[in-house]
Structures are given as structure tokens and as C-alpha cells.
């Protein structure tokens, strides 16, 4: 059985269910559990649901220390950029401590944050910073694109014995979708084929999956059969599913909301250059954000981000070998 659920509610459901299942799971962050009326506080009490000051280094570092000593903390960081304040803890502490101890400790912690807010949040609250984190051995990174994935990946993140950066996309918050009832855990490192096709492979994450599916729908009317793959976790990254798809389609477009050189796309392109080159009938195309900070005003913002139109143009260009008409989609 499944029921329709909002993306944000699916995340909350996973956290609630995991906290019910395991008393070692705690949940804290800024501006949460502020009053006795808070539903999570009511359900789990103020030992396990806590409000914190604006102290990202301590919030993340305390979670790491708590994880090393038996708890499974979920830190609500709200916006992925706030992690930058605490990047030492996320990049150079959490994923290193197990290794440096020769495997003696584990650090089961979830750093939860939204990202990619494309609604006038300007240069410092709209970014996609997963590229750096997916290149850190010891760290895992989940990027759910649907309510079902949001729930299943959060449950997996909480149960994982490693530090996980769980990034949910702001623009998907209100999206509704079918979510399986009861325990639902999606294993990390398993890509999902969101739409099957035979002419070209689109690989996209989070909000870009939705845009790629919309583009695929329109391209189908032109007789172009598009396969859309969502890696769901970019660390670990399921390269094999992408290689298998490219084997079938011979064409690959990588769609990513991040700027070109800090995208997951650029890493996937490298893997396919090594593992899938012989299957490609045309060069790989990357549709990413322009290499600018995200601007504030709506037409400026739209201009720099990937969209359905840019994806469609890229697909046509890759299949026909004709250059894209707009020089700005590079």
C-alpha cells in the first residue's frame, strides 16, 4: 500500500518512524522544538528533540562526538550553505575519525539541509555544494527527487553507520507523490531509472529530475525516447546503471543545477569517459548552471539555471550533432 504525501512530510515521517524505532536517534537544530506544542517535542521529549543556538560548528561537532559515543544524531541545518560555516566538522572531522582510528569508532550522523532554492534567495542561499562532499571518502551524500525517495533515503541515512549529508531540494518541498506505507528504506548507491527510453540518457538529481522528466515528455511527442536516471545518492555513485543505459542509448546529457565545475555532472562525465566511451555515439553534454553566483532578480536567476528548454535543446543537439542555438547554455 502507498499513500500520497508531500516531499517535506515524507522526510518528517522517516525521521519520526526512525526515532520511534531506535531510542538512540536524536534530532536537533536551530528554530525547532521551540514550544511545548511542537509535535516532535511532544512525541519524543526534550532530551531527544532540542533547539540549538546559531552555532553550526558546535551543532555538527557535538553530533559527531555524540555519534562516536553511541547516539545517532540528525542535525537540522536548514540550508546547505550553513554547513559551510562548519565545513571542518563535515569535511575534515566526521569522515576522517573512523579511518584515523583504524576502524575503532563509527560516526553515524545525518547532516540534513535544504539546497538549490531558486526563488529569489540570491547569491548565498541558493547554491548546490554537493560536489565537494561527494569527493570526500568516508562521507555519503543523498539527493532525493521524489517524496518516496525522500522517505526511503532518510531512513537509510539514519540507519547508516557513516556520516551522511542528506540534501533535500527546496523547490520540491510541496511536491506530492506516492510513498509506500510502513518501513521503507532505499539502499544507498542504487540509481533509479525514472523513465525508460532508448535514444538518449539524461542523468539528473533532485529538482533537475523533475525538469528532465518534463523535457522527456515533450521530446516523446517529437518521437525521441529519453531515459531519465536519478543516481539518488551521489556518494556512493551508481556508475554502472548509467554505463548500462549509455550502452543502450549511445547518447548522454548530464543535467545539474550546480555550476559546471562544482557539479556532480562533471564527475559523472569523467567516469563515463573512462567506462562508457566506446558506447557513445556523440560527445557527452553537460547542462549546468552558468559559472556565476546565483543572481537575485527573477529573469537573471532563470537565465543562469538549467531549465526544460535548455535540456530539450541539448538533447536535440546531441542527437543531431547540430550546435545549440543559444551559446549561453554551455
Amino acid at each position: 500500500m502507498a499513500r500520497e504525501m508531500m516531499y517535506a512530510d515524507a522526510i518528517a515521517a522517516a525521521i519520526t518512524e526512525e526515532m520511534q524505532r531506535d531510542p538512540n536517534v536524536i534530532f536537533y537544530g536551530q528554530n525547532m522544538g521551540m514550544t511545548e506544542r511542537d509535535p516532535m517535542l511532544k512525541k519524543f521529549g526534550k532530551d531527544r528533540v532540542r533547539i540549538t543556538p546559531i552555532s553550526e560548528t558546535a551543532e555538527t561537532g557535538i553530533a559527531i562526538g555524540a555519534a562516536m559515543t553511541g547516539l545517532r544524531p540528525i542535525v537540522e541545518l536548514w540550508m546547505s550553505e550553513f554547513m559551510l560555516v562548519a565545513f571542518d566538522q563535515i569535511i575534515n572531522e566526521a569522515p576522517r575519525l573512523r579511518y584515523m582510528s583504524g576502524g575503532q569508532v563509527k560516526v553515524p550522523v545525518v547532516f540534513k539541509a535544504g539546497f538549490g532554492f531558486a526563488a529569489g534567495w540570491a547569491g548565498q542561499h541558493s547554491n548546490c555544494i554537493y560536489h565537494t562532499m561527494m569527493g570526500i571518502p568516508g562521507l555519503k551524500v543523498a539527493l532525493p527527487s521524489t517524496p518516496a525517495d525522500a522517505k526511503g533515503l532518510m531512513a537509510a541515512a539514519i540507519r547508516d553507520d557513516n556520516p551522511v549529508v542528506y540534501l533535500h531540494h527546496y523547490m520540491l518541498t510541496l511536491d506530492k507523490g506516492e510513498v509506500p506505507d510502513g518501513e521503507y528504506v532505499i539502499p544507498f548507491g542504487v540509481a533509479d531509472i525514472k523513465r525508460s527510453g532508448s535514444d538518449i540518457t539524461l542523468v539528473a538529481t533532485a529538482w533537475m529530475v523533475k525538469k528532465s522528466l518534463a523535457a522527456a515528455e515533450r521530446l516523446a511527442k517529437e518521437g525521441i525516447s529519453v531515459e531519465v536516471i536519478d543516481p539518488r545518492t551521489v556518494a556512493p555513485l551508481d556508475v554502472q546503471t548509467i554505463v548500462n543505459s549509455v550502452k543502450k542509448t549511445g547518447h548522454l546529457v548530464l543535467v545539474d543545477q550546480a555550476p559546471r565545475h562544482s557539479s556532480a555532472a562533471v564527475i559523472i562525465a569523467g567516469e563515463i569517459a573512462e567506462q562508457g566511451f566506446k558506447h557513445l555515439k556523440a560527445p557527452v553534454r553537460m547542462i549546468t548552471a552558468m559559472d556565476t553566483p546565483v543572481p537575485f532578480s527573477e529573469p537573471l536567476e532563470n537565465f543562469v539555471l538549467p531549465d526544460e528548454h535548455k535540456i530539450i535543446q541539448a538533447v536535440r543537439s546531441v542527437l543531431t550533432g547540430q550546435p545549440v542555438s543559444s551559446a549561453l547554455t554551455a
Partner: peptide
Amino acid sequence: PGTSGIIGQSIAHATGAALSAQV
């Protein structure tokens, strides 16, 4: 449980261990 080579950062880890003890 372990140590950090980055000055001051383990103060947060120790505080987290105290959170574990409390919870």
C-alpha cells in the same frame, strides 16, 4: 574515542560525548 588534529574542533566532539552521557 579519538582526537582531532584541527585545533579546537575536538572541544565540540567532547561536548557531544557529554550529550550522549546525558541522553
